[in-house]
Structure formats: structure tokens, C-alpha cells
């Protein structure tokens, strides 16, 4: 019974593919929406730029270490993880792990996602493991970002 269901579902999916063709022509409908969205985004960027201009601190001084030093916000999680991870494993130093895991290993996993996840379904209810891992990854990055701000 379950098998039949799965088969049926697969047939459904292939029949769904041509849905692509039933849509709006790119021009003018799709383009119009694009232009509206683009105006909104360009407008917001200009608004932000005029309200919060880019900063410029004192000139660089190699002999005066300021505190705190923050990198760009999208690198904070690497800093956070490095602070968080204090355990060496055998001959591998804690720092080596703290650097390798959030950069090399993390990007390695990202590159391989389509080859690790062999589940063909795109139905979110049938991808519980992938979705759970994705949520954990997002929460993890948010947590280590937070950690880097609290423990700088």
C-alpha cells in the first residue's frame, strides 16, 4: 500500500514539472514585478545610507591595539566558535579545531550538500532529517555569533 502511494506520488511529481510552462510571460508581467521589487530595495539601501553613513575611525596604528575588535558581522560566528572550542583532541590542538571546523569543514559540507542528501523528494514533510539539520546549522551559526559578541 505504501509502495503504491510512493509510486503514485512520483508520477504526480513528473506530471507537475510542466507547471513551469503555465505561468506569466517574462515580459511584461514578471519584469514589472522585478522592477517594483528592485525599486523598493534600491530605495531602502539609499535610505539606510543617508540615515546611517559608513563610519571611519581613527587612522590605523600598528602599535595601539583597540578593544573590542569586531570583524564584519558575517564572520562573527567563526570568532565565536574559536572562543567556544577549548578542547584539544589527542595531538590536535584546540585552536586548530576551532579554526578548521567553522571554515574548512563547514564549507566542505556546504559544497557537498546535494551529494550527501540523496533523498529525491522536495516535499518538506518528507525531508525531516535534512530540514532538522538545516535548522540546527542556522541556530548554531546564530548562537556562535551571539557568543562572539558576549565573550569578546
Amino acid at each position: 500500500m505504501a509502495l503504491i502511494k510512493v509510486e503514485k506520488h512520483e508520477i504526480d511529481e513528473t506530471e507537475h514539472e510542466p507547471v513551469r510552462v503555465r505561468g506569466f510571460p517574462f515580459f511584461p508581467h514578471f519584469l514589472l514585478r522585478e522592477v517594483v521589487v528592485m525599486c523598493l530595495i534600491a530605495g531602502s539601501i539609499i535610505l539606510l545610507a543617508s540615515l546611517f553613513p559608513a563610519g571611519l575611525l581613527k587612522p590605523a596604528d600598528p602599535f595601539d591595539t583597540p578593544s573590542p575588535i569586531y570583524p564584519e558581522w558575517y564572520f562573527l560566528y567563526v570568532f565565536g566558535f574559536l572562543k567556544f572550542w577549548t578542547w584539544g583532541i589527542g595531538p590536535i590542538e584546540a585552536k586548530t579545531i576551532g579554526v578548521t571546523l567553522p571554515m574548512v569543514i563547514w564549507y566542505g559540507i556546504l559544497f557537498l550538500v546535494p551529494f550527501i542528501d540523496r533523498n529525491p523528494s522536495t516535499d518538506i514533510r518528507k525531508r525531516k532529517v535534512a530540514v532538522a539539520l538545516g535548522v540546527i546549522a542556522v541556530l548554531g551559526i546564530l548562537y556562535f555569533t551571539y557568543y562572539s559578541i558576549v565573550h569578546h
Binding site: F24, F26, F27, F30
Partner: peptide, 12 residues
């Protein structure tokens, strides 16, 4: 082919 290329409804 550029101008009439259909964009799926969900995407729009």
C-alpha cells in the same frame, strides 16, 4: 524566447 519565456506562477 526572452520576452515570452514563461515565469512560473509560484515564482511570481
Amino acid at each position: 524566447p526572452i520576452v515570452k519565456h514563461p515565469a512560473p506562477e509560484k515564482v511570481t
